[in-house]
Simulated assay, not measured.
Amino acid sequence: MTTLAPWPYPRWVAHRGAGKLAPENTLSAFRLGAQYGYRFFECDAKLSKDGVLFLMHDAELERTTNGHGTGSDLTMGEIAQLDAGSWHSRAYAGEQLPTLEALARWCLANQLQLNVEIKPTPGQELETGRACGALMNRIWPQDRTPPLFTSFKPASLQGAKEVAPHIPRGLLVDKLADGTGDIDLQTALDLGCSAMVLNHELWTAELVTKVHAAGLHCSSYTVNDAWAAQRLIDLGTDGIITDRVDLFSPAQTGPGL
């Protein structure tokens, strides 16, 4: 059995800033999450046409901006002109999609922690991971708790590992492997991951024990119900990503939601 290292991050993670209470992946969302007391934030990062990392979940622009087509086909200057708030509510009309650097510097200035989901446009998996690693090498102080890189794409985690091997990595998993009823733990181990981040419904006591025994931490997305959060706490998992920053207090560290 491998010894499980201490987990340097808070249990509660605010999804895309403030979940659904503000337009996702905008600075307004992260500020709102901080107002609810959250200290650890998840975001999605991808590359613009001119190689700048910006925040957006989807490859396509239509759902969360007034733009059209693929976000990575635009330069950062063009992306910055998009309205990324009106889709959510009139209160956020004109909100911009920030760069990952802007969010990281905001986190540093406010003593907050950051989970960067490397969310590459298809075909840019390796280079997006490398770009994330290079950015954090440049701006994130060595004496601060490092950000956490996560991705569904092993190639993106490999790229981050090549450039910034000291920054912890977590493999995201949405479903069990076909025919085995198990998770792809070996891929996470081959990538030198510190965590596996599963669809919360997949965790069982047996899986938690297996992952912990391999020396990896157990985190979950996206947990929006009290019963689900309590189940994960009872199972002994380490991290909970939630949209419901208004429902869960980040001060909660144990049973008794």
Rank of each mutant, 00 (worst) to 15 (best):
L61Y: 08
E62F: 02
E62W: 03
T65L: 08
G67N: 06
H68G: 06
H68S: 11
H68W: 03
H68K: 14
G69P: 10
T70A: 02
G71P: 13
G71S: 13
S72V: 01
S72T: 00
S72H: 14
D73E: 15
L74T: 08
L74F: 11
T75D: 07
M76V: 05
M76E: 00
G77E: 07
G77W: 07
E78D: 10
A80M: 15
Q81C: 12
Q81E: 15
L82G: 01
L82M: 03
L82H: 03
L82C: 09
D83Y: 11
A84K: 13
G85D: 09
W87A: 05
A91Q: 14
G94H: 13
E95V: 02
Q96A: 15
Q96T: 12
L97H: 06
L97S: 07
P98Y: 12
P98S: 10
T99Q: 15
T99F: 13
L100W: 04
A102Y: 06
L103W: 04
L103K: 02
A104R: 04
A104C: 06
W106V: 07
C107P: 12
C107K: 11
L112I: 01
Q113D: 00
L114H: 10
L114M: 04
L114Q: 02
N115Y: 06
E117S: 10
T121E: 11
P122Q: 12
P122C: 14
Q124P: 11
E125I: 00
E125F: 07
L126V: 04
L126F: 03
E127N: 05
T128E: 06
G129D: 09
G129W: 10
A131N: 07
C132L: 11
G133Q: 05
G133C: 02
A134V: 05
L135V: 07
M136F: 15
M136N: 01
N137L: 06
R138N: 05
P141F: 00
P141L: 13
R144T: 05
T145V: 15
T145I: 15
P147E: 09
L148I: 07
T150N: 08
S151W: 12
S151E: 03
F152H: 00
K153F: 13
A155V: 08
L157R: 10
L157W: 12
L157Y: 01
G159I: 03
G159W: 09
K161P: 13
E162K: 04
V163P: 10
P165S: 05
H166Y: 03
G170F: 02
G170P: 13
L171H: 05
V173T: 14
D174W: 00
K175G: 01
A177E: 15
T180H: 14
T180Y: 11
G181Y: 05
G181N: 09
D184L: 12
D184S: 14
D184R: 13
T187A: 00
D190N: 14
L191N: 02
L191Y: 03
G192N: 04
G192W: 08
G192M: 08
G192T: 07
C193F: 09
C193N: 06
S194D: 06
V197C: 14
L198Q: 05
